[in-house]
Amino acid sequence: MNDHNAATLAAVRSSSDPERNAVTEVDVAPTGPDPHAVFQAVDLSVYYGSFCAVRGANLAIAQHEITAFIGPSGCGKTTMLRCFNRMNDFIETVRVEGSVLYHGVDLYDPAVNSTEVRRRIGMVFQKPNPFPKSIYDNVAYGPRLGGVKKKAELDEIVERALKGAALWDEVKSRLKASGLGLSGGQQQRLCIARAIAVDPEVILMDEPCSALDPIATARIEDLMQEIKTKYTIVIVTHNMQQAARVSDKTAFFTTEVNTESDRRTGCLVEFGPTSTIFSKPNDERTEQYVTGRFG
């Protein structure tokens, strides 16, 4: 199992962009994952110390789709999202059981380099967090780490990323100005530009609009629709309307209260096409949540 994963990981790493799809096709792990899935969580449980934040989640995320994670606070949506690019690594007590397969490769395999993982799987955070640097340097930071040194090449990447994030026209005349001088919505689009500048395959978004006003939110949502042709997007959101508007698939999480310890554990209730989740869900809890009677 491990040898197989190490080999496929090498294949994934060495593949240049046009060949990504080819890699997905040849890659079928023995556990029988969905060959078209970018991510597949298999019996995924996440613990913080002895506290179980998510228990036994199974889902597959398809390429070039927007998948939304919805559910009440504390249901483990963000925890789950952060497993997909190993951002959980920085929490000391965290422990992951089960597996997260990325094109069939277990991301938690000891041979996997988490820094490489995060280069391929970018992230946009809840609060816009530009670096205290110029707009240009914010976007150029990732490519520079990746070894791009030539000014002309960097200029091109920065322009492409800012255009991709629908920010270019607003900032092209002041690329040397601080990223912190932008408005909240612009800052968040700058963060999206920064994420796409390293040309990832997936962008994980952790409540990207929760700190933004409705107009800025609408711009980000439009942007997501534009870029989903190039990237696979997973978004955590508190806003059910947002999930209904932007996503192709929706995963509904909820909390289960352990009556003995009174602790809450997140679990995945239902996962399916967004239209099904919002119109005729299978689970009663999903229906109660999406109709606003709970959560």
Partner: peptide
């Protein structure tokens, strides 16, 4: 140093040392 700043660095694939050098120490 705000966690968000570190997260931002890790999010674009910076290693621990790169985050320390480029973001933590200047801040």
């Amino acid at each position: 140093v705000p966690q968000g700043l570190r997260d931002a660095g890790y999010g674009v694939g910076a290693s621990k040392w790169e985050v320390t050098r480029d973001h933590v120490l200047p801040y």
